[in-house]
Design a protein around this nucleic acid. Sequence first.
DNA 1: ATAGATGCAAATGTTTTGCAGGAAA
DNA 2: TTTCCTGCAAAACATTTGCATCTAT
Lengths: 148, 148
Amino acid sequence: MAHDLEQKALASYLEDHNLKHTKQREAILEVFLEVKGHITGEDLYQRVRAHHPGIGYTTVYRTMKLLCDAGLASERHFDDGITRYEIEHEHHDHLVCVRCGKIVEFECQMIESAQDDIVKRYGFRLLRHRHELYGHCPDCQRREKGGA
Amino acid sequence: MAHDLEQKALASYLEDHNLKHTKQREAILEVFLEVKGHITGEDLYQRVRAHHPGIGYTTVYRTMKLLCDAGLASERHFDDGITRYEIEHEHHDHLVCVRCGKIVEFECQMIESAQDDIVKRYGFRLLRHRHELYGHCPDCQRREKGGA
DNA sequence: ATAGATGCAAATGTTTTGCAGGAAA
DNA sequence: TTTCCTGCAAAACATTTGCATCTAT
Protein backbone atom coordinates (compact mmCIF):
# COMPACT_ATOMS: atom_id res chain seq x y z
CA MET A 1 0.00 0.00 0.00
CA ALA A 2 0.98 3.65 -0.49
CA HIS A 3 1.45 4.05 3.25
CA ASP A 4 4.50 1.83 3.37
CA LEU A 5 6.54 4.88 2.56
CA GLU A 6 5.41 6.73 5.64
CA GLN A 7 5.68 3.70 7.87
CA LYS A 8 9.29 3.46 6.75
CA ALA A 9 9.83 7.15 7.44
CA LEU A 10 8.47 6.60 10.94
CA ALA A 11 10.70 3.58 11.49
CA SER A 12 13.78 5.45 10.43
CA TYR A 13 12.88 8.46 12.55
CA LEU A 14 12.42 6.24 15.59
CA GLU A 15 15.70 4.50 14.93
CA ASP A 16 17.59 7.76 14.48
CA HIS A 17 16.24 9.09 17.73
CA ASN A 18 16.62 6.01 19.89
CA LEU A 19 12.89 5.59 20.20
CA LYS A 20 11.00 2.35 20.11
CA HIS A 21 8.83 0.97 17.40
CA THR A 22 5.57 -0.01 19.05
CA LYS A 23 2.30 -1.38 17.69
CA GLN A 24 0.49 1.66 19.09
CA ARG A 25 2.60 4.08 17.10
CA GLU A 26 2.21 2.07 13.97
CA ALA A 27 -1.55 1.80 14.45
CA ILE A 28 -1.98 5.52 15.02
CA LEU A 29 0.04 6.44 11.94
CA GLU A 30 -1.93 3.88 9.96
CA VAL A 31 -5.29 5.38 10.89
CA PHE A 32 -4.02 8.92 10.46
CA LEU A 33 -2.90 8.19 6.91
CA GLU A 34 -6.04 6.22 6.18
CA VAL A 35 -8.35 9.14 6.93
CA LYS A 36 -6.00 11.47 5.06
CA GLY A 37 -5.45 13.82 7.97
CA HIS A 38 -7.52 16.83 9.14
CA ILE A 39 -8.53 14.77 12.11
CA THR A 40 -8.94 15.70 15.76
CA GLY A 41 -7.24 13.89 18.63
CA GLU A 42 -10.61 12.67 19.84
CA ASP A 43 -11.62 11.32 16.45
CA LEU A 44 -8.28 9.65 15.96
CA TYR A 45 -8.55 8.12 19.41
CA GLN A 46 -11.98 6.66 18.62
CA ARG A 47 -10.89 5.23 15.31
CA VAL A 48 -7.71 3.67 16.63
CA ARG A 49 -9.66 2.32 19.56
CA ALA A 50 -12.00 0.45 17.19
CA HIS A 51 -9.12 -1.79 16.17
CA HIS A 52 -7.01 -1.51 19.28
CA PRO A 53 -9.19 -1.23 22.37
CA GLY A 54 -7.24 -0.28 25.42
CA ILE A 55 -5.21 2.43 23.79
CA GLY A 56 -5.28 5.72 25.72
CA TYR A 57 -5.80 9.34 24.76
CA THR A 58 -2.35 10.01 26.09
CA THR A 59 -0.69 7.77 23.59
CA VAL A 60 -2.60 9.29 20.72
CA TYR A 61 -1.59 12.82 21.68
CA ARG A 62 1.98 11.84 22.38
CA THR A 63 2.29 9.95 19.14
CA MET A 64 0.86 12.77 17.07
CA LYS A 65 3.38 15.12 18.63
CA LEU A 66 6.05 12.64 17.66
CA LEU A 67 4.75 12.40 14.09
CA CYS A 68 4.88 16.19 13.89
CA ASP A 69 8.49 16.16 15.02
CA ALA A 70 9.19 13.48 12.46
CA GLY A 71 7.76 15.74 9.75
CA LEU A 72 4.92 13.37 8.86
CA ALA A 73 2.11 15.39 10.41
CA SER A 74 1.43 18.94 11.44
CA GLU A 75 -1.02 20.60 13.80
CA ARG A 76 -3.70 22.97 12.57
CA HIS A 77 -5.90 25.17 14.68
CA PHE A 78 -9.20 26.26 13.21
CA ASP A 79 -11.95 28.36 14.70
CA ASP A 80 -13.39 25.77 17.04
CA GLY A 81 -10.22 25.58 19.13
CA ILE A 82 -9.78 21.84 18.67
CA THR A 83 -6.39 20.80 17.32
CA ARG A 84 -6.52 18.93 14.04
CA TYR A 85 -3.67 16.94 12.56
CA GLU A 86 -2.99 16.96 8.87
CA ILE A 87 -0.53 15.16 6.67
CA GLU A 88 2.50 17.39 6.31
CA HIS A 89 2.97 18.61 2.76
CA GLU A 90 3.84 21.75 0.88
CA HIS A 91 2.37 25.05 1.96
CA HIS A 92 -1.35 25.64 1.56
CA ASP A 93 -4.33 27.26 3.24
CA HIS A 94 -7.87 26.13 3.97
CA LEU A 95 -11.52 26.51 3.14
CA VAL A 96 -13.71 25.25 5.98
CA CYS A 97 -17.40 24.46 5.75
CA VAL A 98 -19.00 25.63 8.97
CA ARG A 99 -22.02 23.39 8.44
CA CYS A 100 -20.55 19.96 7.71
CA GLY A 101 -16.95 20.53 8.76
CA LYS A 102 -15.49 19.68 5.38
CA ILE A 103 -11.98 21.04 4.90
CA VAL A 104 -10.59 21.87 1.46
CA GLU A 105 -7.04 23.00 0.79
CA PHE A 106 -6.10 25.81 -1.55
CA GLU A 107 -3.01 27.64 -2.61
CA CYS A 108 -2.79 31.07 -4.21
CA GLN A 109 0.40 32.67 -5.39
CA MET A 110 -1.22 36.05 -5.75
CA ILE A 111 -2.13 36.11 -2.09
CA GLU A 112 1.33 34.95 -1.08
CA SER A 113 2.97 37.84 -2.86
CA ALA A 114 0.42 40.33 -1.56
CA GLN A 115 1.34 39.12 1.91
CA ASP A 116 5.00 39.75 1.22
CA ASP A 117 4.14 43.33 0.25
CA ILE A 118 2.19 43.89 3.45
CA VAL A 119 4.93 42.46 5.60
CA LYS A 120 7.46 44.68 3.88
CA ARG A 121 5.26 47.72 4.33
CA TYR A 122 5.16 47.20 8.10
CA GLY A 123 8.79 46.17 8.35
CA PHE A 124 7.95 42.73 9.74
CA ARG A 125 9.92 39.59 9.03
CA LEU A 126 7.38 36.90 8.09
CA LEU A 127 7.73 33.52 9.73
CA ARG A 128 4.42 31.90 8.87
CA HIS A 129 0.81 32.73 8.27
CA ARG A 130 -2.63 31.35 8.68
CA HIS A 131 -5.36 31.99 6.17
CA GLU A 132 -8.74 30.34 6.54
CA LEU A 133 -11.95 30.94 4.63
CA TYR A 134 -15.14 29.92 6.43
CA GLY A 135 -18.41 29.38 4.65
CA HIS A 136 -20.84 26.83 3.24
CA CYS A 137 -19.65 24.16 0.83
CA PRO A 138 -21.57 23.36 -2.35
CA ASP A 139 -23.23 20.29 -0.82
CA CYS A 140 -24.50 22.22 2.16
CA GLN A 141 -25.81 25.02 -0.05
CA ARG A 142 -27.79 22.43 -1.97
CA ARG A 143 -29.11 21.01 1.28
CA GLU A 144 -30.13 24.51 2.39
CA LYS A 145 -32.25 24.97 -0.69
CA GLY A 146 -33.73 21.52 -0.15
CA GLY A 147 -35.10 22.62 3.18
CA ALA A 148 -32.83 21.43 6.03
CA MET B 1 -13.45 62.12 26.31
CA ALA B 2 -13.84 60.13 23.12
CA HIS B 3 -15.16 57.19 25.11
CA ASP B 4 -18.39 58.91 26.01
CA LEU B 5 -19.74 57.77 22.72
CA GLU B 6 -19.22 54.11 23.52
CA GLN B 7 -20.46 54.47 27.06
CA LYS B 8 -23.65 55.89 25.58
CA ALA B 9 -23.87 53.03 23.12
CA LEU B 10 -23.56 50.60 26.02
CA ALA B 11 -26.23 52.42 28.02
CA SER B 12 -28.65 52.36 25.13
CA TYR B 13 -27.96 48.69 24.43
CA LEU B 14 -28.62 47.84 28.06
CA GLU B 15 -31.80 49.84 28.08
CA ASP B 16 -33.07 48.27 24.86
CA HIS B 17 -32.45 44.80 26.22
CA ASN B 18 -33.77 45.23 29.74
CA LEU B 19 -30.34 44.86 31.22
CA LYS B 20 -28.93 46.82 34.09
CA HIS B 21 -26.32 49.50 34.02
CA THR B 22 -23.79 48.53 36.67
CA LYS B 23 -20.49 50.05 37.74
CA GLN B 24 -18.73 46.79 36.80
CA ARG B 25 -19.93 46.95 33.22
CA GLU B 26 -18.98 50.57 32.92
CA ALA B 27 -15.54 49.95 34.43
CA ILE B 28 -14.79 47.03 32.12
CA LEU B 29 -15.79 48.95 29.01
CA GLU B 30 -13.72 51.89 30.25
CA VAL B 31 -10.56 49.81 30.60
CA PHE B 32 -11.20 47.96 27.36
CA LEU B 33 -11.43 51.23 25.42
CA GLU B 34 -8.48 52.70 27.30
CA VAL B 35 -6.08 49.94 26.19
CA LYS B 36 -7.54 50.10 22.68
CA GLY B 37 -8.52 46.45 22.53
CA HIS B 38 -6.48 43.37 21.57
CA ILE B 39 -6.56 42.38 25.21
CA THR B 40 -7.03 39.00 26.86
CA GLY B 41 -9.64 38.24 29.49
CA GLU B 42 -6.89 37.72 32.05
CA ASP B 43 -5.20 41.03 31.27
CA LEU B 44 -8.49 42.88 31.31
CA TYR B 45 -9.35 41.27 34.63
CA GLN B 46 -6.05 42.40 36.15
CA ARG B 47 -6.41 45.95 34.92
CA VAL B 48 -10.00 46.35 36.01
CA ARG B 49 -9.09 44.81 39.34
CA ALA B 50 -6.46 47.52 39.92
CA HIS B 51 -9.23 50.10 40.18
CA HIS B 52 -12.04 47.84 41.31
CA PRO B 53 -10.74 45.08 43.57
CA GLY B 54 -13.29 42.42 44.21
CA ILE B 55 -14.45 42.11 40.65
CA GLY B 56 -14.48 38.51 39.40
CA TYR B 57 -13.25 36.80 36.25
CA THR B 58 -16.81 35.78 35.62
CA THR B 59 -18.02 39.31 35.34
CA VAL B 60 -15.23 40.24 32.96
CA TYR B 61 -15.99 37.33 30.66
CA ARG B 62 -19.72 37.87 30.84
CA THR B 63 -19.40 41.57 30.20
CA MET B 64 -17.11 41.10 27.22
CA LYS B 65 -19.63 38.70 25.75
CA LEU B 66 -22.25 41.36 26.27
CA LEU B 67 -20.08 44.03 24.62
CA CYS B 68 -19.67 41.71 21.65
CA ASP B 69 -23.44 41.32 21.39
CA ALA B 70 -23.77 45.06 21.62
CA GLY B 71 -21.40 45.43 18.68
CA LEU B 72 -18.74 47.31 20.65
CA ALA B 73 -16.20 44.49 20.86
CA SER B 74 -15.37 41.31 19.03
CA GLU B 75 -13.45 38.18 19.89
CA ARG B 76 -10.27 37.22 18.09
CA HIS B 77 -8.44 33.93 18.32
CA PHE B 78 -4.76 33.92 17.49
CA ASP B 79 -2.26 31.09 17.56
CA ASP B 80 -1.83 30.87 21.31
CA GLY B 81 -5.41 29.84 21.90
CA ILE B 82 -6.19 32.71 24.26
CA THR B 83 -9.20 34.79 23.33
CA ARG B 84 -8.47 38.44 22.76
CA TYR B 85 -11.06 41.20 22.56
CA GLU B 86 -10.73 44.02 20.10
CA ILE B 87 -12.73 47.14 19.45
CA GLU B 88 -15.24 46.31 16.77
CA HIS B 89 -14.62 48.22 13.56
CA GLU B 90 -14.56 47.65 9.85
CA HIS B 91 -13.04 44.50 8.44
CA HIS B 92 -9.31 43.97 8.73
CA ASP B 93 -6.70 41.28 9.34
CA HIS B 94 -3.63 41.06 11.57
CA LEU B 95 0.13 40.99 11.72
CA VAL B 96 1.31 39.43 14.99
CA CYS B 97 4.82 39.68 16.40
CA VAL B 98 5.65 36.31 17.94
CA ARG B 99 8.40 37.82 20.09
CA CYS B 100 6.76 40.78 21.79
CA GLY B 101 3.12 40.05 21.06
CA LYS B 102 2.48 43.32 19.23
CA ILE B 103 -0.58 43.21 17.01
CA VAL B 104 -0.89 45.40 13.92
CA GLU B 105 -3.98 45.58 11.72
CA PHE B 106 -3.91 45.59 7.95
CA GLU B 107 -6.39 45.57 5.12
CA CYS B 108 -5.75 44.52 1.54
CA GLN B 109 -8.29 44.74 -1.23
CA MET B 110 -6.22 42.59 -3.55
CA ILE B 111 -6.31 39.70 -1.10
CA GLU B 112 -10.02 40.15 -0.54
CA SER B 113 -10.77 39.78 -4.20
CA ALA B 114 -8.37 36.86 -4.59
CA GLN B 115 -10.32 35.18 -1.83
CA ASP B 116 -13.55 35.74 -3.68
CA ASP B 117 -12.06 34.01 -6.70
CA ILE B 118 -10.96 31.02 -4.65
CA VAL B 119 -14.32 30.69 -2.98
CA LYS B 120 -16.01 30.83 -6.34
CA ARG B 121 -13.67 28.22 -7.77
CA TYR B 122 -14.62 25.74 -5.05
CA GLY B 123 -18.30 26.70 -5.07
CA PHE B 124 -18.27 27.80 -1.43
CA ARG B 125 -20.34 30.64 -0.05
CA LEU B 126 -17.99 32.78 2.04
CA LEU B 127 -19.16 33.82 5.47
CA ARG B 128 -15.97 35.11 7.03
CA HIS B 129 -12.26 34.58 7.01
CA ARG B 130 -9.22 34.75 9.16
CA HIS B 131 -5.88 35.88 7.88
CA GLU B 132 -2.96 36.27 10.21
CA LEU B 133 0.70 36.93 9.45
CA TYR B 134 3.14 35.87 12.16
CA GLY B 135 6.69 37.16 12.33
CA HIS B 136 9.04 39.58 14.02
CA CYS B 137 8.20 43.27 14.21
CA PRO B 138 10.79 45.94 13.35
CA ASP B 139 11.59 46.62 17.01
CA CYS B 140 12.26 42.97 17.74
CA GLN B 141 14.45 42.64 14.66
CA ARG B 142 16.52 45.54 15.93
CA ARG B 143 16.77 43.88 19.32
CA GLU B 144 17.89 40.64 17.67
CA LYS B 145 20.78 42.39 15.99
CA GLY B 146 21.59 44.12 19.25
CA GLY B 147 22.17 40.77 20.90
CA ALA B 148 19.11 39.80 23.00
C1' DA C 1 -40.50 44.35 45.23
C1' DT C 2 -38.36 42.10 41.53
C1' DA C 3 -35.82 40.99 37.52
C1' DG C 4 -31.40 40.83 36.66
C1' DA C 5 -26.14 40.97 38.10
C1' DT C 6 -22.41 39.54 40.86
C1' DG C 7 -18.70 36.54 42.80
C1' DC C 8 -17.40 32.40 44.47
C1' DA C 9 -16.63 27.63 43.79
C1' DA C 10 -17.19 23.93 41.02
C1' DA C 11 -17.64 22.20 36.30
C1' DT C 12 -16.16 22.08 31.53
C1' DG C 13 -13.42 20.39 27.59
C1' DT C 14 -9.04 19.72 25.59
C1' DT C 15 -4.47 18.59 26.24
C1' DT C 16 -0.51 17.49 29.38
C1' DT C 17 1.99 15.33 33.16
C1' DG C 18 3.36 12.03 37.15
C1' DC C 19 3.90 7.63 38.00
C1' DA C 20 3.89 2.48 38.39
C1' DG C 21 3.74 -1.25 35.59
C1' DG C 22 4.88 -3.19 30.80
C1' DA C 23 7.21 -3.97 26.42
C1' DA C 24 11.01 -3.29 22.99
C1' DA C 25 16.01 -3.27 22.35
C1' DT D 1 18.08 -5.65 31.91
C1' DT D 2 17.95 -1.26 30.74
C1' DT D 3 15.65 2.25 28.40
C1' DC D 4 11.80 3.77 26.64
C1' DC D 5 6.35 3.38 26.44
C1' DT D 6 1.95 2.90 27.98
C1' DG D 7 -2.41 3.84 30.38
C1' DC D 8 -4.51 5.57 34.16
C1' DA D 9 -5.61 9.24 37.13
C1' DA D 10 -4.85 13.74 38.22
C1' DA D 11 -3.30 18.34 36.76
C1' DA D 12 -3.35 22.27 33.84
C1' DC D 13 -5.46 25.97 31.56
C1' DA D 14 -8.94 29.23 29.76
C1' DT D 15 -13.59 29.73 30.01
C1' DT D 16 -18.43 28.69 31.66
C1' DT D 17 -22.09 27.55 34.84
C1' DG D 18 -24.85 26.81 39.39
C1' DC D 19 -26.24 29.13 43.02
C1' DA D 20 -26.98 32.14 46.96
C1' DT D 21 -26.59 36.91 47.58
C1' DC D 22 -26.84 41.52 46.31
C1' DT D 23 -28.40 45.72 43.55
C1' DA D 24 -30.40 48.68 40.01
C1' DT D 25 -34.77 49.80 38.72
